[in-house]
Nucleic acid binder design. Structure first.
Length: 816
RNA sequence: GCGCGAGUGGCGGAAUGGAAGACGCGUAUGGCUCAGAACCAUAUAGGUAAAACCUGUGGGGGUUCAAAUCCCCCCUCGCGCACCA
């Protein structure tokens, strides 16, 4: 038979009819398996790089179906978001029209590749049936004090009159118009993810089946550090400046303080400074530096002296207070005790402004001299009063204790993690369900008034304010409390809020009264296998974990983590670059499907290399996959015409060898799939089996029953990868039911047994010969045999072996 | 700067302490063919045409009977984070 696109279409219809991927979630007759591929952002049609993701998920689902699981494999659309809006503006169509058009196209693509989903569970985040519950989750967070509004700085382009995401700021300027970006303070909504920082960190230990890399990225992102907060009294004042440090052991080396330009104490501090004007100038300069300027490699440290001094509470030393551009307002207390001898940044700053450097830590007791350079490690304290001589570790403890006793400091923990800013001054998102009333203030929309519908007819060109501001029929409402006229919040939510809970919605996608049914969700989650790109390692995966934990605390779900197992697939690159339209290196799947059929593409993508690693696309590889499939299919043609029977006769050596190959292949392919999805090696082994079938046919006699078994096994093992062809062959071989209703093949150890085996003969670790031995020989017989070999005798000559190492079934090493 | 990952034929890769290069691509030779494509067969790390031998998994050292694999030092590339005190 010839394989072509026509084969594909036939089986797509069949699977749909069979309802192969439609799940009855109440069915408990089989164990459940929730296989989830990260849902796409429908911004353009998919290329082969995207395809890899879905093909992996489909192979896993089909394999698990054959292993007897009730497999849930749903699909949906992360449909809100800025790119849709930008594209809509560009093409002068409504974001919804644009998004829905893309969804149709992508759906068509997924279907054409034979990716199986339970389409009855399709969800689209921009539909009110979905975002009603996104808003509901927001309200729940609000009720618990985990959603709040505060003023915060954001990147602002004065020309485009809009807030920009950090990613849209290139070298301090707007990526579109190159206008210098300013920092503008806006009232924004935040979710208090920081309340969950510790649990998000701790519970990573529950995620045994997550890639280490992703967990490390999350650990770094959360960035927990333990240290001490210490108060520095200001000279001639009752005020104090509180600093956070992880290196309290270096306190005696603190020779100046540095404040962030936003620190509240500055106003009071500089009110009668002689250089007040210069200070203000400096603050303005720093203020207008975009956040992104800090990211530049050699961001220059700058500062200005306030004219005031603080007292180092331990050394009693009078130290100058500076304002410096490298101090972060958001981290710790926004004020730093600077120890130039033991901190690179402080060192750099002290050098520049000629500030005192006092060495207080020596690398070890025996070091007598230290050049004037920074030593950031831990060691032994010197020049540290009563604490001199202690190790850093002991000193940290003892100084912290002393500070607490003296009530001038305390142990403290800080995180890098910031609260999640979810306000977007954009149209295409879920409205934040809040109403502002002149008399009642900020009022949440009552749950029974949800959803707050996103109005359809809107002028959404960017003006600097949320487009919703101009929709009077949207903004004007009445206060739920006092029934007086009130205004709606006009910002929409970050799309990451939409995607932080979608995996729950798939269980009951059409439910109108609740976001999800706890009982069902508790049975189907956590997700058994989550599959997606590593680019979501932090944002999406951290947000989802946070929201899940929040729902857990409300008692709405009973699992602390939403995704039990995570698989992050590698990118497909072409000519060394990630595929992108601008690079012009996108490989579109359509022509591949037309020319070779979906299974060829699927097989090649899975065969390219380990799925977690990046892979380089090569058209020739596709050709190879096609060739293999045709070669395998030709066996089916041979089998149809095959009449050799010798049933009842004992098996000949070719038949025994082939049976052994069949069973070892089943074993190895199963191991590869149960492991870390080693599709590439699994496919290689199936190719070996095909090669051996040809060899057996060409070289020896093969009875039909064994030939049949071999061919049947090939296509059973291939079926998760190449479902169309496998289904076709299954049908030709006379099976009435779908190949996916059959069980995954089992192997029998009895076929794997060997009577004779070839082992390697090594002398001093180098292979010199090979010899066939019986598997039941003991070490002594093997040694005797080896030493009698002509080649071995020749090499050994008069030397007698010092030692003979026999590794069963593998080799013998003679040490001379 | 810190963290993670990787480095193996002409290419994608296999082998996680036991015969380096499975499987595939490419290439070569032969078969089939009027011819080509396709297909089939054989070969394919290097020194080398072959036997024998030697060398060989980024570089250097070590552990071991035995190292691509484990340990130490270094180099290169990719990714992530990046003034977090």
């Amino acid at each position: 038979m010839e394989y072509s696109k026509a084969t594909d279409l036939k089986w797509h219809a069949f699977w749909k009819n069979e309802r192969l991927f439609n799940v009855d979630i109440k069915d408990t007759s089989k164990p459940k398996y929730y296989c989830l591929v990260m849902f796409p952002y429908p911004s353009s049609e998919l290329h082969v790089g995207h395809a890899r993701n879905y093909i992996i998920g489909d192979a896993v689902s089909r394999y698990k179906i054959m292993r007897g699981y009730n497999v849930l494999s749903p699909m949906g659309w992360d449909a809100f978001g800025l790119p849709a809006e930008n594209q809509a503006i560009k093409h002068k169509i409504h974001p919804q029209t644009w998004t829905l058009k893309n969804i149709e196209r992508i759906k068509e693509q997924l279907n054409s590749w034979g990716i199986g989903y339970d389409w009855d569970r399709e969800i689209t985040t921009c539909f009110p049936q979905y975002y009603k519950w996104t808003q509901w989750i927001f309200l729940k967070l609000y009720q618990k004090g985990l959603a709040y509004r505060k003023e915060a700085f954001a990147n602002w382009c004065p020309s485009c009159k809009t807030v920009l995401a950090n990613e849209q700021v290139v070298d301090g300027a707007c990526e579109r118009c190159s206008t210098k970006v300013e920092q503008k303070k806006l009232k924004q909504w935040f979710l208090k993810i920081t309340s969950y920082a510790d649990r998000l960190l701790e519970d990573l230990s529950l995620l045994k089946d997550w890639p280490e890399k992703v967990k490390i990225m999350q650990i770094n992102w959360i960035g927990k550090s333990e240290g001490v907060e210490i108060d520095f009294p200001i000279e001639n004042s009752n005020e104090k400046i509180r600093c956070f440090t992880t290196r309290i052991d270096t306190i005696f080396g603190a020779t100046f303080l540095a404040l962030s330009w936003e620190h509240q104490v500055i106003k009071e501090l500089v009110k009668d400074s002689i250089n007040k004007n210069q200070i203000e100038e400096f603050i303005n300069k720093v203020k207008n530096q975009p956040l992104s300027a800090r990211l530049v490699e050699n961001f220059e440290k700058e500062g200005i002296f306030t004219g005031k001094f603080a007292i180092n509470p331990l050394s009693g030393k009078k130290i100058p207070i500076w304002i410096a551009n490298y101090i972060l307002t958001e981290y710790g207390t926004g004020a730093i005790m600077c120890v130039p001898a033991h901190d690179k940044r402080d060192f750099e700053f002290a050098k520049k402004y000629n500030l005192e450097i006092i060495e207080v830590i020596k690398p070890s007791q025996h070091t007598t001299t230290l050049p004037i350079a920074v030593f950031e490690g831990e060691g032994i304290l010197v020049n540290s009063g009563n604490f001199s001589g202690l190790t850093s570790r002991d000193a940290k403890e003892k100084i912290a204790f002393y500070l607490e006793e003296a009530n001038i400091g305390r142990r403290a923990v800080n995180y890098k993690l910031r609260d999640w800013l979810i306000s977007r001054q954009r149209y295409w998102g879920a409205p934040i369900p809040i109403i502002y009333c002149d008399s009642c203030g900020e009022v949440p929309v009552p749950e029974n008034n949800l959803p707050v519908l996103l109005p359809y007819n809107i002028e959404f060109l960017p003006t600097g304010q949320s487009p919703l501001t101009f929709a009077k029929e949207f903004t004007q409402t009445t206060c739920p409390n006092c029934k007086r006229p009130a205004q709606r919040e006009t910002d929409t939510m970050d799309t990451f809020v939409d995607s932080s809970w979608y995996y729950l919605r798939y269980i009951s996608p059409k439910e109108e009264n609740v976001a999800f049914i706890t009982e069902d969700v508790n049975r189907w989650l956590p997700v058994d296998q989550y599959i997606g790109g590593v680019e979501h390692a932090i944002l999406h995966l951290l947000y989802s974990r946070f929201i899940n934990k929040f729902l857990y605390d409300l008692g709405l779900v009973n699992f602390p983590e939403p995704f039990a197992k995570l698989f992050t697939q590698g990118m497909i690159v072409k000519d060394g670059f990630k595929m992108s339209k601008s690079k012009g290196n996108v490989v579109a799947p359509d022509y591949i499907i037309d020319k070779y059929g979906a299974d060829t593409m699927r097989l090649y993508i899975l065969f390219m290399g380990p799925p977690q690693k990046d892979a380089e696309w090569q058209d020739e590889g596709l050709q190879g996959a096609y060739r293999f499939l045709q070669r395998a299919l030709r066996l089916v043609d041979v089998l149809k015409e095959y009449n050799n029977t010798e049933e009842g006769q004992p098996l000949n050596s070719f038949e025994r060898a082939l049976l052994k190959k069949i069973h070892s292949t089943i074993k190895e392919v199963t191991v590869d799939l149960e492991g870390d999805f080693q599709f590439n090696t699994a496919i290689a082994r199936i190719m070996e089996l095909v090669n051996q079938i040809y060899k057996s046919l060409n070289e020896g006699f093969l009875r039909k029953s064994i030939f049949y078994q071999a061919v049947d096994t090939v296509f059973l093992l291939l079926s998760p990868f190449t479902p169309h062809i496998s289904e076709e062959v299954n049908n030709i071989l006379g099976n009435k039911c779908s190949i996916f209703r059959r069980s995954w093949p089992l192997y029998y150890e009895e076929y794997l047994k060997e009577e004779e085996i070839e082992i390697a003969v090594l002398i001093n670790g180098k292979v010199k010969d090979k010899v066939t031995i019986s598997t039941d020989w003991d070490k002594r017989s093997v040694e005797e045999k080896i030493l009698s070999l002509e080649k071995v005798k020749k090499i050994l000559g008069n030397n007698t072996p010092k030692k003979i190492i026999y590794v069963e079934k593998r080799l013998v090493n003679i040490v001379v």
